[in-house]
């Protein structure tokens, strides 16, 4: 077999992020990530709607379903979603070409996901939303303003 030099520029490997709550062995998770047709999409505005996700990600192929991430308590969008395609190729296309472009004027970020399981649509932070919203330092009006700690501190001040 001849060598394809184009592979030198594009490590087709998956990113280093691993879901710590994955139910199964490391090997299972690895295999799931390498064969899955599902993407995790992050850094969404809380105000981005499901139909926008369909429109944008539909540009890369047939979308099977979109699952919007919700605040565990309030059941309102909390800034992420899962996009499931029918084929791996379409999902790859979306990852290559839609990740790091803008939706609602925010740079969104996509990554492989091992597959949606009921319960994963909910934020895992203490406050019900995503954990990252509890650690960021900036003011982000489309993701609920300051993180909680900062908000509370400024109230005390």
């Amino acid at each position: 077999m001849v060598f394809d030099p184009r592979t030198l520029d594009q490590p087709k490997d998956i990113s280093a992020y691993r879901d710590q709550r994955y139910q199964g062995s490391v090997r299972d998770q690895e295999l799931a990530l390498r064969t899955s047709c599902t993407l995790y999409v992050g850094n969404l505005s809380y105000y981005t709607k499901e139909d926008q996700v369909y429109e944008l990600f539909g540009r890369a192929g047939d979308v099977r379903r979109v699952i919007m991430g919700l605040d565990r308590f309030k059941k309102t969008p909390c800034g992420f979603c899962f996009v499931e395609y029918y084929t791996r190729e379409d999902a790859e296309l979306a990852l290559q070409n839609i990740s790091n472009t803008r939706m609602d004027d925010r740079v969104i970020r996509a990554d492989w996901d091992a597959g949606f399981v009921e319960g994963r649509q909910y934020g895992r932070g203490k406050h019900g939303g995503q954990v990252r919203d509890e650690y960021r330092k900036d003011y982000d009006p489309e993701r609920g303003g300051y993180n909680r700690a900062i908000a509370q501190k400024s109230m005390v001040d």
């Binding site: 001849v2 060598f3 394809d4 030099p5 184009r6």
Partner: peptide, 11 residues
């Protein structure tokens, strides 16, 4: 030879 052939095809 395999590597050179690949470069001829893909580059």
């Amino acid at each position: 030879i395999d590597i050179v052939a690949g470069c001829a095809i893909y580059l």
